[in-house]
Amino acid sequence: MSALGFQNSLGIHQQALLVRAQRTEVLANNLANSDTPGFKARDIDFEAILRGEVSKNASLPVERTSSKHLAGRGSMNQDMLYRTPYQPAIDGNTVDDNVEHAEFTKNAMAYNATFEFLNSRFTGLRSALRGE
């Protein structure tokens, strides 16, 4: 099976797993800073990123400002948004623990679902290669 055939068999799910992992980091950072005065909660627009992935069928974009920089797996800064709080805190912090926990839980469930899907794909590919 060629590398292109292998990529086609996984579809967008490998990129989705990476984006979900990065979103987990962003949401965890929000939760860790829930008591930091002036901290602004952020999130990733998962659907917009994947729409971009589907349209260009490539890895996440990376801006390299120097030829000496290593190629990375992508920057989410252009796709990160500030969360609008339902009730802003007096100290300027926009983290709502309930919202962040709910988003973190939904993201974790989606991550696990994507992981299980990829795992089943690998199991199927392994069976096909073995001729089972």
Results as ranks from 00 to 15, higher is better:
97 D>H: 14
79 D>H: 13
10 L>M: 08
38 G>D: 04
37 P>Y: 03
53 E>T: 13
98 N>D: 08
95 V>K: 03
86 Y>F: 08
127 S>H: 15
36 T>S: 07
43 D>Q: 11
1 M>E: 05
50 L>C: 03
85 P>C: 02
132 E>A: 13
57 N>L: 04
110 A>C: 05
74 G>W: 04
15 Q>D: 06
7 Q>W: 09
7 Q>A: 09
26 V>N: 04
34 S>L: 13
42 R>I: 04
128 A>H: 12
90 I>L: 11
1 M>K: 01
71 A>H: 14
99 V>K: 02
93 N>Q: 02
95 V>I: 06
108 A>Y: 10
12 I>M: 05
57 N>H: 10
63 E>G: 10
59 S>R: 15
96 D>G: 02
131 G>L: 06
114 T>F: 05
36 T>P: 00
123 T>Y: 14
11 G>L: 02
3 A>I: 11
17 L>A: 07
44 I>Y: 02
36 T>L: 07
79 D>F: 12
108 A>P: 05
105 T>C: 00
52 G>N: 10
7 Q>G: 01
61 P>T: 03
128 A>I: 14
82 Y>G: 00
93 N>R: 01
68 K>H: 11
127 S>T: 15
20 R>Y: 11
94 T>S: 13
51 R>N: 10
29 N>R: 12
51 R>A: 10
129 L>S: 06
108 A>G: 09
15 Q>H: 10
23 R>I: 05
54 V>A: 09
82 Y>C: 00
53 E>A: 10
81 L>I: 12
65 T>W: 07
2 S>T: 12
114 T>R: 06
43 D>A: 10
94 T>K: 03
53 E>M: 12
110 A>D: 09
80 M>H: 02
107 N>E: 04
129 L>D: 01
114 T>L: 03
102 A>L: 11
11 G>W: 00
125 L>D: 05
90 I>F: 09
121 R>K: 15
39 F>N: 02
85 P>A: 00
120 S>K: 14
119 N>M: 14
69 H>F: 12
17 L>I: 09
115 F>Y: 12
77 N>Q: 13
6 F>T: 11
35 D>W: 09
58 A>P: 05
91 D>R: 12
65 T>E: 11
73 R>N: 08
87 Q>G: 02
117 F>D: 02
98 N>S: 07
16 A>C: 05
79 D>W: 14
121 R>Y: 07
71 A>S: 13
23 R>S: 02
97 D>K: 15
75 S>I: 10
105 T>E: 00
48 A>Q: 11
44 I>L: 14
49 I>S: 03
54 V>K: 13
40 K>D: 01
109 M>T: 12
42 R>Y: 03
113 A>C: 04
57 N>F: 07
73 R>T: 11
109 M>I: 14
102 A>M: 12
